[in-house]
Design a protein around this nucleic acid. Structure first.
Lengths: 261, 261
DNA sequence: CGTTCGATTGAGGAAGATCAATTAATGTGG
DNA sequence: CCACATTAATTGATCTTCCTCAATCGAACG
C-alpha cells in the first residue's frame, strides 16, 4: 500500500501555452505538494525502514510528560495535538495529516509537552531521534527535510494565532474548513466532501469558541450555500468551492463601508 | 509515571534539608538559565565569530517576503515578530529576548514570513544558515542547540495559543506581564521594575484585544496592588511579586464556586 | 426500545469592542 | 523655555459578539 512511491519526477516540465485557469494552476500545485510528501516518505523509508505503527481513533502516540526519544511521521490518518496546562486546561493546538511530523515539542525539554491523539485509523512511522541525527550527519538532504518540517510548523502556528486573534467566530470556522480541505487537496485527497473527525466541542476548543458557536457558524455557512451537510450525519460536509470559503473570510474582514458588488 | 528526569535544567540533586524557600529555588533556576544562554552565545561566538549588528528601536532585521539566508541570535535588546497576512492584517506573534533565535520561519519557504522589529537598542548576531549547517555537521553540539531553540519556539507558540484561547482579557494581560518578567529573570535582569517597550495598542495586538481593554486590565491590576505604575510615564511597571500574577491567572480560571480561602 | 451522546436552536447575560471625551506625556519650532 | 501640536493612555457610555443555560431533536448503540 505504501513505501517506495516512485520517487524522483517532480514535474520539471513547462506546461504548454494553452489555457491555464486558476483552478488548473492550483491543481498543479497540489499535485506537486502531494508528490513532495510522497518523496519525503519514500526517502525516510529508504534510509530508516522505520518501524510502522497502526493506530486507531483515540490512540495516543505520545503524551505530555513522557520522555522524548522519537519523532513520528504520519503515513496515513489524522491526528490532533493537545496541549495541557498544569491547571488542567486542555487545548487542541494542531491537526496533523499525511506527511506531517509529530514530536518536535519534546526536543527542547527532553519530554513531550503535548498529547498526540489519533482521530482515525492510520499508520505512523517511528523515527528514533538519535538515529535521525546520525543519519542527518551523513545525509544533508535529511537534515533539510527535518528543518523544513520544523520551520513549517513554526510558521503555521503563527498563522493559527493570527486566525484566533483577528477573525470573527464565523470566519474562523470558515477558515478552519478551508484549511482542512486544502490540507486534503495537497495530499491528493478529495475535498468536495470531507468528513470531520472532530465533534463540535473539539472544533470549538481548537478555534477558541464554544460548541454552540461552532454549530451556529456551520448553520450560517450552510444557509449561505458555502457548505452543505450530507443527508445523514452532520459530520460529513460538502464544500462546493473551497475558494468561496476564503472569499467569505476576506469579506468578513472588510469594513462594512466597502460596497459588496 | 515516568523515568529519570535528568536533562540539565531539572534539579537532579536532592537538596539538603535546610531552608530552601521557593524563591531560592527559583533564583537558582534563573541563574542556571542565564548561564545556559551565556554558554550558548559563547559557543556561537567561538565557532562563527558572527557578524554583529547594532540595531535601534524600529529597525527591521528582516522582513516578510525577503529571501531567507540568515538566522539571527539576540545578544541584547528586544524584538517583536510581526506576522503579516496578504490582506493586510498584522499581528505581533512573538517577543524575543537575549539568547533567542530569529528567522526559523524562513527555512521552509526560502523566504521569511514575518517582520522582525527591534523595540530597543540592541545587538544581533548574524549566522549564515548554510555555514550553520556546515558547522553542525562537524559539531553535533551545535545542532542540538539549534534544534532545541526551534523546539522551544514551537512549544512556546502553543502556549501562546493556549493563553489566547482559554484566558480572559485581564488574565491574559497578567500572564503577559508574568511572561515578560520571567523572561527578564531568566536572563539575570531586574524584574521588580520593568519597562514595557510596547504601546497599549501593540500589547493588545499581541494579546488579541483592543488597547482600551489592555488599559482597563492594567488599571484593574494596579487597583489590586498586583502592579504599580512608576510616578512618571505609564510604560514603567513595578511588579512586587511575579508569583502573585501567576496566582491571579489561576484564580481567574477557578470557577466561582471554589471557595477562595 | 430506551439510553446516551452529539448537534441544533433559542433566550438572556456578560465580556469585550466601539465610539467618544478627557488627560497625560512627547515632541517641535519659535 | 514656552506655546502648541501630536501621540499615547485613561475612562465612560453604548452596542455587539459570543458565552451560558436550557430545551429539543437526531443518531448510534447496547
Amino acid at each position: 500500500m505504501l513505501s517506495t512511491p516512485s520517487t524522483s519526477e517532480t514535474t520539471s516540465f513547462v506546461r504548454p501555452l494553452a489555457a491555464t485557469p486558476a483552478s488548473t494552476l492550483r491543481d498543479e500545485a497540489n499535485r506537486r505538494a502531494s508528490q513532495s510528501i510522497a518523496d519525503t516518505l519514500a526517502l525516510l523509508n529508504e534510509v530508516f525502514a522505520p518501524q510502522r505503527r497502526i493506530v486507531h481513533a483515540g490512540d495516543l502516540i505520545y503524551q505530555s510528560g513522557e520522555r522524548f526519544g522519537n519523532l513520528y511521521v504520519l503515513n496515513s490518518g489524522f491526528f490532533k495535538i493537545v496541549n495541557l496546562a498544569p491547571d488542567g486546561r486542555e487545548l487542541v493546538v494542531g491537526l496533523k495529516f499525511r506527511g506531517d511530523w509529530l514530536g518536535f515539542d519534546g526536543i527542547a525539554g527532553g519530554r513531550y509537552s503535548c498529547d498526540a491523539v489519533a482521530m482515525d485509523t492510520g499508520e505512523v512511522w517511528v523515527l528514533r531521534y538519535d538515529r535521525m541525527l546520525a543519519a542527518c550527519a551523513r545525509q544533508p538532504e535529511l537534515l533539510k527535510l527535518l528543518h523544513e518540517a520544523m520551520s513549517r510548523e513554526i510558521a503555521h502556528d503563527r498563522d493559527s494565532l493570527m486566525s484566533v486573534c483577528t477573525l470573527s467566530a464565523d470566519a474562523r470556522v470558515a477558515d478552519f474548513l478551508r484549511y482542512w480541505a486544502e490540507s486534503l487537496a495537497r495530499r491528493g485527497m478529495r475535498t468536495d466532501q470531507i468528513t470531520l473527525r472532530m465533534t463540535r466541542a473539539e472544533i470549538g476548543n481548537y478555534l477558541g469558541m464554544t460548541l454552540e458557536t461552532v454549530s451556529r457558524a456551520l448553520s450560517r455557512l450552510a444557509r449561505c450555500q458555502l457548505i452543505h451537510f450530507a443527508e445523514k450525519g452532520r459530520r460529513d460536509i460538502q464544500i462546493p468551492q473551497v475558494e468561496a470559503l476564503a472569499e467569505y473570510v476576506q469579506r468578513s474582514l472588510a469594513p462594512a463601508d466597502v460596497v459588496l458588488q
